[in-house]
Design a protein around this nucleic acid. Structure first.
Lengths: 342, 342
DNA sequence: TTGTAAGCGTTATCAC
DNA sequence: GTGATAACGCTTACAA
C-alpha cells in the first residue's frame, strides 16, 4: 500500500503537497497538482483512514449497540442509522449486547475506546452511570429504552399510549378478561406497556388482576408455560395483549386453536399474513435509527446548541383480524345465539 | 481522557513503564508497578484503541458487508460473526450494500481503508476484481455468494442440492407443473437454485418450461405480478418453488386462496406458523457467519497455512405442510372423486 | 528494571 | 506555492 511519502517521492514534492492535492487544497500550482495526480494514480494511492482518524482524534464511525442484531426490530434501527451515516461518509459499528446486563459495560466501552463519533444504544442494563465519563467526549443517543442514572439524548416510542390503545381496542371488542404477556419487567418498555395496559383497564372500569399478567417470556417454551398458567385460572382470559414483537413471535405459534383474541405491541414481517392477521401497534424502528444518527450528526456539527433530551414517537394501531376473535366465553355465548339467527 | 504520558507523570515514571504495567509485562519491579497501578486508577486511564491500532497497523475489527442488514438471513450471519469476534476481543463493523452493484466497491473500500483485520462479504456486484489489491493485506471471506473474477475464501450453501431436493419433493407429491419464483438471476445463489430446479425436473422426466420461471421478484408487488402471469398460462402450475426467503416472504401473502403447493429455499421466523406451514430448505446463516469469522481468525494466526478456498455447507429439507396442498388441477380431480368417496 | 528514541501515516503550523 | 517540522498515543528496538 503506497503512502503519501511514496507518492511524494515519485512526484518530487513533499508529503504535505501530496496531502494538499489529495484534499483539494487550492494553494497548489496547476503543474505541481497535475504531477502529483499522476503519481497518485500511478501508485494507486489509497489513504489510510486509521492514520487520518488517529490524527483527527475521532473515527468516522457511529457505534450501534443493541440487544440482538438478528432481531428484525433492532436490525431496522441499525439499517436506519446506517443509511443516514453512509450519506455522511460515516460507517456503523454494530455490537450485540446479549441478555446479560453485566456484560454491557465491557462491550460498550470497548466500542467507545475506538473514539467513535457517536454511540446509539438500546441498552440491556439498568444503570448507565458508567457512561458518564464518555458523555462529554462522545454524543450518546439512547433508542427504544431511556437512560437510567444518566442524562443523555433518547428517542423512544410511546409505550404507554400504544399499550393503552391496544388494550382499549380489545375492550371495545367486548373483552374484559385480557391477559398481558411480556418479557422481562426490568426493561423500561415492558414496564411502560404494562402501565398502559393497566390504565386502559381501569379507565374501562375493569379491575386489574395480576394473575392475568405473565412476564419473563423469552421463547416459545416460555410462551407455552405462560399460556398454560392462564388456561388454568378459574376465569380464563378471552384475549391477550403481547408486549413486544419478539414475545409475539414466540406466542403466536403456541396460540393455535385456543381462540384467543390478540393485539400486540410491535409489527413484524408477515404479521399481516398469519391466520388470523395480527392487529398490532406499529412502531417505526427505521425512523428511530435515523433520528438517532441525525442527532449525533447535529451534535457533532453544533456541539453547543441545546437539544431536547427526550423525544417520544407516537405509535399507531394497525387493525387487522386477530382482535376480532371472540374468546372462549364469547364463543359459547355465540353458540347459543347462532342457531336462533340462522 | 488521560493518556499514558499523564499517568507516567503522576507516577514519576516513563510512558514506556506505564505501557509495561498496563500490558502486564513482568519486567517491572513490584513497587513501581503498584505506583503505576494507583496512577492508572486515579486518572481512570482508558487506552486509546485508535492509537494502538494505528501503531499495530491493523484494527481489531472484522468488517461485515451484506446486502441488507434488516433481512433476518443476513442479520443471523452478522450475529454469528459478532459472537465469535467478541470472544476474541474483536468488534464487527457492518455495512449495508443495498441493491446497486455499482455502489458496492465504494462502500467496501471505505470499510477496508480502516485497516480491518478481515472482511466478510455477501456481495451484490458480479465482479470482485477490485478487491484484488486488498486481498494480500486483509483476509477476505465471501459468504452466501462466491467471489467472481477473484480468488478468495468462501462459505456457501449447497444451492443446487437444496433446490433439487425441494423440487423433487414437490414432484413426489404429485406435481408436474411447478413454477419457479426468484429474485435477480444475476445473483449466483439464484442461478444455482434455478439449475437445481431444472435438473430435478429433468431427472423426473418433466420437461423444463421457461414460462414457469419468474425472476426479478423483489417485493409483494412483484410477487403478485409473477403470480398473475403464471395464472394466465394455458396450463397453470399446481406448485411453486420459491428461491429465497425474501422472495418467499413477499410471495406468501399473495398466495392466499390460490391453492398452490409450495416449497421454499431458506427458513425464516414463523415459517412454521403460517397457514399452511411452509416446507423449506433450511440454511444456517449463524454457522455461515461463525465459520467466516473463524477463517479470518485462522488466517490472521497462521497466514502461511493453506486453506480450502471453497466450503459448501449442506442444507436440508424441513417438511411441514405447504407441500401437501393439492394444486388446482389435482383439486379438480379430487372434486370429481370426493362425492364418490363420501 | 527502567528509560530514550524513533516511528506508524497523516495533517496543522509556520517558515521560506 | 512549497516544504520542514512536529504532533496525535502508543509500542518496538535498543541503551543504560
Amino acid at each position: 500500500m503506497a503512502t503519501m511519502r511514496d507518492v511524494a517521492a515519485l512526484a518530487n514534492v513533499s508529503a504535505k503537497t501530496v496531502s494538499r492535492v489529495f484534499n483539494d487544497d487550492p494553494h497548489v500550482s496547476p503543474e505541481t497538482a497535475e504531477r502529483v495526480q499522476a503519481a497518485l494514480r500511478q501508485l494507486n494511492y489509497v489513504p489510510n483512514t486509521l492514520a487520518t482518524t488517529f490524527r483527527a482524534g475521532r473515527a468516522p464511525v457511529i457505534g450501534v449497540a443493541v440487544p440482538d442484531i438478528a432481531d428484525p426490530f433492532f436490525g431496522f434501527i441499525a439499517k436506519g442509522a446506517d443509511a443516514l451515516a453512509a450519506q455522511n461518509n460515516l460507517s456503523v459499528v454494530i455490537a450485540s449486547l446479549g441478555e446479560d446486563p453485566d456484560r454491557e459495560p465491557g462491550i460498550v466501552e470497548s466500542l467507545l475506546r475506538q473514539t467513535l463519533s457517536g454511540l446509539i444504544i438500546a441498552p440491556v442494563s439498568h444503570d448507565h452511570a458508567y457512561l458518564k465519563p464518555w458523555s462529554d467526549r462522545t454524543p450518546l443517543v439512547f433508542v427504544d429504552r431511556p437512560p437510567m442514572r444518566l442524562s443523555a439524548d433518547c428517542f423512544i416510542e410511546d409505550d404507554h399510549q400504544g399499550a393503552y390503545t391496544a388494550t382499549q381496542h380489545l375492550v371495545q371488542h367486548g373483552h374484559s378478561r385480557i391477559g398481558f404477556i411480556g418479557d422481562d419487567a426490568s426493561i423500561p418498555t415492558t414496564r411502560g406497556r404494562l402501565e398502559g395496559y393497566r390504565t386502559a383497564l381501569e379507565d374501562s372500569g375493569i379491575d386489574y388482576d395480576d394473575r392475568l399478567v405473565s412476564l419473563g417470556v423469552r421463547d416459545r417454551g416460555g410462551a407455552a408455560e405462560a399460556l398454560a398458567i392462564l388456561q388454568r385460572l378459574e376465569v380464563t382470559p378471552t384475549a391477550l395483549f403481547s408486549s413486544n414483537a419478539r414475545v409475539t413471535m414466540s406466542l403466536v405459534p403456541m396460540l393455535q386453536g385456543l381462540g384467543l383474541a390478540v393485539t400486540a405491541f410491535g409489527d413484524f414481517p408477515l404479521a399481516d399474513t398469519l391466520s388470523p392477521a395480527l392487529t398490532v401497534i406499529d412502531q417505526d424502528p427505521v425512523t428511530l435509527g435515523t433520528l438517532a444518527a441525525q442527532r449525533i450528526l447535529d451534535r457533532l456539527e453544533r456541539p453547543r446548541r441545546r437539544y431536547r433530551r427526550r423525544t417520544v414517537l407516537p405509535v399507531e394501531l394497525v387493525e387487522r383480524r386477530s382482535c376480532y376473535i371472540a374468546g372462549r366465553l364469547d364463543q359459547q355465548r355465540n353458540h347459543e345465539v347462532v342457531p336462533v339467527a340462522g
